[in-house]
Design a protein around this nucleic acid. Structure first.
Length: 510
RNA sequence: GCCGCGUUGGUCAAGGGGUUAAGACGCCUCCCUUUCACGGAGGAAUCACGGGUUCGAAUCCCGUACGUGGUACCA
């Protein structure tokens, strides 16, 4: 079912970073747009100038780029429906708010912050802990519904600070069909008179989404479930301003939860796993929170893991590339319930992608890991061989250092606990003779693995020492610990000279 | 408090009137490997609760509980 002229938008606020839920929202928007041959639009919701932070918008686009999500229209990609930043469209909104006032669907409110606080304080009870500015109180407030038109005009002319609020109708059922939840309905009496235009002339999200979605000809709007409660306001605004028939189709995506309830992006550190796509620096506290990218995740794994957190295609498939996701995604199969994020499973996806992808595709990233540990990588061929050898035992990109550093740096500490009980003069003699024979081989530097192995095994049977114990010791000599791929492959890789050198080092240490 | 949304193993989940209730992560056992992994074979573990409807309910209906979101001149 391919719809024509599909236009899907993602509207992030640039100040909060891009966390798990945010990335999944973009992803689903993007998949839906691509799947239906439509346009994917990114519009920046920098509604409140004072909260706009330099660099925060760039952060969002950096994350999208890392994830492999390319917008068709955005403040940086251009497009015919710009500007794509809310702060640059400020002048557009007022007329819609005024239009609503004229039609009787909204009104001017002159209440000061103190007035509002007083109203809330007066009305607050145990049963009603947060009184709303709604149908039951608006006639007791200072607004164009309660004062004379002349007085309103006068206040306006004097430039009195005011907002424009929607006038929620009394006892109407507002319902709409959500692409995930099905029909959802609200009683209008229970919804408050939301501010549409703030005293500083900026629209609130409510007015801005509706106006922008209309102006940008958006056909589908997917957002987090935290917006479901304000959907009735948006539904009404569409009806009053542009006609319900032009309203985009909504889908409210389930929330991503943390190990114990909601996933808060503020203290991501407390979970022991990242919550942001990339490193995020809070502009207020200057605190850095590690991102999935920096933690050692491949973007393919990150996207894969997020896509299937709350969605699956009904088959047993777990690993999906972006192309497969675009092919198989359907918004109807997105879950209704929130999903708890499981870092263990996320790591498993990364491990699968490390195994699946050719090492060359992430060699540059792995190289950074080694560089960070002051190991220079100059022989590309050798590096690829090393990566290939250890990729099966890495779950994060950062594991490559732990799993492969000994291919570059000889061990300095040995697993003495394993070697000591097995170590005796006979074995010392074995290794002296082994390195002697290695050096005597006719071949030059590039000794093949089979040669290391044959000499080793022949000598073992000559000396009548248990092969297994010898291999374990040999491994500790080369690696320092009892880990890694086959000993003889390691010997072959680091080469004859390095092997002999490490044997001698160990011989003098044990 | 009120309103909205939700609820299948510890986690992600398939299944939407009749199934031995898939699969994956994690955990455990064994095999492979005289290393660590990878791989392979097994195992423990689930329909939130209570009422209906029905010959029959994880599936449909109603309650309750629990979770979660909203209840701002934040998004």
């Amino acid at each position: 079912m391919v719809e024509k002229n599909v236009r899907v938008r993602f509207a992030p606020s640039p100040t909060g970073g891009l966390h798990l839920g945010g990335v999944r929202t973009v992803l689903y928007n993007y998949l839906f747009a691509r799947k239906n041959g439509g346009k994917f639009i990114v519009r920046i919701e920098d509604t409140d100038q004072t909260r706009f932070v330099e660099g925060a918008e760039k952060y969002i686009f950096d994350c999208l780029q890392w994830c492999g999500i390319v917008p068709d229209e955005s403040p940086v990609h251009g497009g015919n429906f710009g500007p794509y930043r809310q702060s640059e469209r400020k002048s557009l909104y007022r007329k819609y708010a005024e239009e609503l006032v004229e039609k009787g669907f909204a009104y001017y409110a002159f209440d000061t912050t103190a007035d509002l606080e007083k109203m809330r304080a007066d009305l607050r009870t145990a049963e009603n802990p947060s009184p709303q500015y709604d149908g039951t109180v608006r006639m007791a407030m200072k607004n164009s519904l309660t004062i004379s038109p002349a007085e309103v005009t006068e206040l306006l002319n004097k430039g009195t600070l005011h907002v424009i609020r929607i006038k929620m109708p009394e006892n109407e059922t507002i319902s709409f069909v959500d692409m995930i939840h099905g029909e959802v309905s609200f009683n209008s009496s229970l919804v408050d008179d939301k501010v549409l235009l703030k005293a500083d002339g900026m629209p609130t999200y409510h007015l801005a989404v509706v106006a922008d979605d209309y102006l940008m000809e958006i056909t589908h709007a997917f957002r987090g479930e935290e917006w479901l409660s304000s959907a009735p306001v948006h539904i009404l605004l569409w009806k009053y301003l542009f006609g319900s028939e032009h309203m985009p189709q909504w889908a409210h995506l389930p929330l991503i939860l943390g190990p114990s309830g909601k996933l808060s992006k503020r203290d991501g550190a407390k979970y022991g796993f990242p919550v942001f796509a990339m490193n995020w620096v809070d502009h207020k506290t200057n605190e850095l929170t590690e991102g999935f990218k920096e933690k050692g995740f491949l973007s393919q794994a990150f996207i894969n893991m997020l896509a299937v957190l709350g969605w699956n295609d009904g088959s047993e498939q777990e690993i999906f590339s972006m192309e497969e996701l675009i092919d198989k995604f359907s918004i109807e199969r997105v879950h209704k319930g929130g999903a708890k994020f499981d870092f263990e499973k996320a790591k498993w996806y990364n491990q699968e992608w490390i195994k699946k992808l050719p090492v060359a595709s992430y060699a540059a990233l792995a190289k950074e890991v080694f560089n960070a540990k002051s190991i220079a990588i100059d022989d590309e061929i050798y590096f690829l061989k090393v990566l290939e050898l250890v990729k099966d035992r890495c779950t994060l990109l950062t594991d490559f250092y732990d799993q492969a550093h000994y291919f570059y740096v000889p061990p300095t500490v040995y697993d003495a606990a394993s070697v000591k009980p097995k170590w005796d003069e006979g074995k010392a003699g074995f290794f002296r003779e082994y390195s002697h024979r290695l050096l005597e081989t006719a071949q030059l530097e590039q000794l093949p693995m089979a040669v290391f192995e044959t000499i080793f095994k022949d000598l073992a049977s000559e000396t009548n020492i248990k092969l297994g114990e010898l291999q374990m010791i040999f491994r500790v000599m080369l690696v320092g610990s009892k880990t890694g791929p086959g000993v003889f492959v390691i010997a072959e890789t680091i080469g004859r000279d390095a092997t002999v050198e490490r044997i001698e080092n160990a011989l003098s240490t044990f």
